[in-house]
Design a protein around this nucleic acid. Structure first.
Lengths: 83, 83
DNA sequence: TATTAATATACTCCTTAGCGTATAAATGTC
DNA sequence: GACATTTATACGCTAAGGAGTATATTAATA
């Protein structure tokens, strides 16, 4: 139930899966939080330039929350991969 | 150790506390991930327009990871507060 | 309190998100 | 295959992030 996201692409995937699990369309979601269908499409596609406010709007619509925590041992060794 | 962020401002606070806990300056952090000191300053201040890529860069520098999960009962009742 | 380090602002430039609107391209359904 | 629904793209436009650079403010500390 709790998924780690290390890149915008991963966030997009999580959002998409959740939206589909809730059986909602991008348009329906967009209406709830006043975002265009195109905007949601790009977020799900993993656009790195997506704004934090947009992400939070979407998380709200999907009843998801964001948690920040120290990287776990198992994952922290791939830090360099991001650069 | 694991903190919930529901707004850009809360993310900023979490980032700032973590950075200070690691005894780093905004400049030092910025060098690690090629971000200007000013950019980090704005993120910590809670700029809603901050880009996802910027957030991930910062989380990487601070050895933090982002988790997405369904809202907990205790917190889900304030969803409307975001709108 | 004088000085130094750290953070917040400012200015110009370039790029891009997100808006409205519209349509192409997939995907589903009969 | 035909039609409907959903998602991906496109165009013009406005607003704003982040770059470089520089400086004003605000802590820290001698």
């Amino acid at each position: 139930m709790t998924q780690i996201a290390r890149t915008p692409k991963q966030i997009g995937e999580i959002v998409r899966r959740r939206r589909q699990a809730l059986k909602q369309t991008q348009i329906q979601m967009g209406k709830q939080v006043r975002l265009r269908q195109a905007t949601i499409s790009k977020l799900e596609a993993g656009e790195p330039g997506t704004r934090l406010s947009t992400l939070f709007d979407v998380l709200t619509a999907l009843d998801l929350e964001l948690v920040i925590r120290p990287r776990t041992k198992s994952s922290s060794r791939d830090i360099e991969e991001n650069f």
